[in-house]
Design a protein around this nucleic acid. Structure first.
Lengths: 335, 335
DNA sequence: TTGTAGGCGTTATCAG
DNA sequence: CTGATAACGCCTACAA
């Protein structure tokens, strides 16, 4: 059923039917006619064709959302916020996953351009390499076409971003751990070229100053498996015994490390203390509770949507993170 | 930039440009021209307008995905599979969340109809009430319009579904627990009218037969908080002491119960044994490991997409679930 | 092999 | 306040 059918059924012109149904800017249809049209529409089970509307109006109601992996609790929490906020603005969310592949990321940006998305939110860190040129270029093309863009987590040059203060959070974590009496650390650093991981690593290291030292900084995948393998390697190399605490640059890595420790028969925190980064909510039932730095994922999602829908000067908002001390890093000073 | 611009730039007709760029059914453009067009398109940074294509072709490349809450690990795991499979088919996923609201669910189905989605996957259980009529009606309207539909988890009458064998899984769980020596149970039953919860509850009860008994079956929200509150109530009512194991009808409820037990100073499994249902992957690091019934979420997603894209006879595929015994329900026979 | 022209379902401009 | 009618950007018979 098309609007023409409705118009005919109601005995009015196409134009009138259109105005009656969506009440456009120049609302001006006699109530009686509105009712007639509405009834006709109901009778015919008419549903406007969003595609055609988009074309006629010249803009869609789609918001593109790019994440690495929607099954990752970090991204699914952000996605929940994005979806909620977008829906409140009358936008549909078109979800795509980059699978950690920079090339794919640029491709997907292009896809959003094709879909004529009204705005795009891109979450998830990237590498600091030349590859990111492709991304920047795609993004620029998008922006030129008038699409609102916002990046989450790691700011993108020329794009409105809501950044996470990874350095500050890591520094605060370092300070807290030092206060608790920890001195020697092993850092599960994530991929060296991943900006987020790097900031957390460096933030931690810098804040340590001469009050603490890092016995080992391992490069790993930014995943559960990465954390898992890294801890096994540390144990194998014998560094673990020489260390007060293991600090992972994200929570799922910390979980992997936790699992690995258990497999090795090492108790956490008795044999090795552990800290993560992220504060993903499903962790609240893990034992021991994980010391971590919480990132306000909901806020990230909400602000990103607002930014993407906003005026687009390349703002960089920054959200802070909070250290949460859990059972995985007990106070050493009493001991 | 529109295709006309490209055509002009390349010095060919609009039709030729169209054929050159998307290589439609009647591929028949001289290679030389194809190249000229391609180059022109590149020079102009032309990107086809998916909206216009959809309209011209009469069909979109959108797959709608409805879940209750994308932050829930169960749904995000399904979503990951759906997105992956859809992308492989060249479809974009339009994500919407129902927030457990049946009215909203029907609304969203309508929204998908508006978007002229090519197919719709609807995940997440519903109530067995009159309310579901609205859903069935919307769904029927969708189907009539030629949209492929598939339901995940709980079959919907008249709709291709991939069902979870909740009854069977629950029965198997009951059998396993009985084998381990458990006899008296408390069941955290979820909402009484929720079909999924009901099937699990009844499946468990039926399989118990006269070998075991249920001391208490509590109605609760299907959430962490629901499980949490329910366990507190059980403790308060004194039933907890009288019971061998607490069986939750889903994993997040079990986690809530686990947390509540800890708050009460009760050890799991020393003071109370616990089982869940679902097998969400983030649980692998919870201590003690939770006895549960795993549901193959990835498979659910993949098959649902195939079903939605397929021939649509109202098939009901069924996937089985497996009991996994964890540390939360130790063997009682040795004791 | 290439071009012409009509149409997809709406909106929006411009007269009545 | 209402009704023709021209876009919107692309696809696709049909014709050349």
């Amino acid at each position: 059923m098309t609007l023409s059918d409705v118009a005919r059924e109601a005995g009015v012109s196409l134009a009138t039917a259109s105005r009656a149904i969506n009440g456009s800017a120049d609302r001006s249809v006699r109530p009686e006619l509105v009712e007639r049209v509405t009834e006709a529409a109901a009778r015919l089970q008419y549903t406007p064709d969003a595609t055609a509307q988009a074309m006629a109006r010249g803009r869609t109601t789609t918001l593109g959302l790019l994440v690495h992996d929607i099954a990752d609790p970090y991204f699914s929490a952000i996605a929940a916020a994005v979806v909620r906020t977008a829906e409140a603005e009358g936008l549909q969310v078109s979800l795509a996953t980059t699978q950690n592949d920079p090339a794919r990321e640029a491709q997907l940006i292009d896809l959003m351009r094709r879909q004529r998305a009204r705005a795009v939110v891109i979450a998830g860190g990237r590498s600091a390499g030349e590859r990111s040129d492709a991304l920047a270029e795609s993004l620029a093309a998008l922006g030129r076409q008038g699409v609102g863009i916002a990046a989450i987590g790691q700011p993108v040059p020329g794009v409105a971003s809501v950044a996470v203060d990874n350095r500050g959070g890591a520094a605060a974590l370092a300070a807290s751990l030092l206060d608790l009496g920890y001195r020697r650390f092993a850092v599960l650093g994530g991929p060296t070229d991943r900006v987020t991981a790097r900031d957390r690593r460096e933030g931690f290291l810098d804040a340590l100053g001469d009050r603490g030292s890092v016995a080992s900084s391992v490069e790993t995948a930014f995943t559960w498996e990465g954390g898992h393998r890294a801890l096994l390697r540390l144990a194998q190399d014998g560094v673990l015994a020489d260390v007060d605490a293991v600090v992972a640059t994200n929570d799922v890595m910390a979980l992997g490390a936790l699992a690995a420790a258990r497999e090795l028969g090492l108790g956490v925190p008795q044999d090795v203390a552990l800290a993560g980064f992220g504060g993903i909510s499903t962790l609240r039932d893990v034992v021991p509770t994980l010391t971590t730095v919480t990132v306000p994922m909901d806020e990230l999602g909400v602000r990103a949507v607002r930014l993407a829908l906003g005026d687009q000067g390349d703002v960089v908002e920054s959200v802070g993170c909070d250290v949460v001390i859990g059972g995985s890093t007990p106070d050493l000073r009493g001991a």
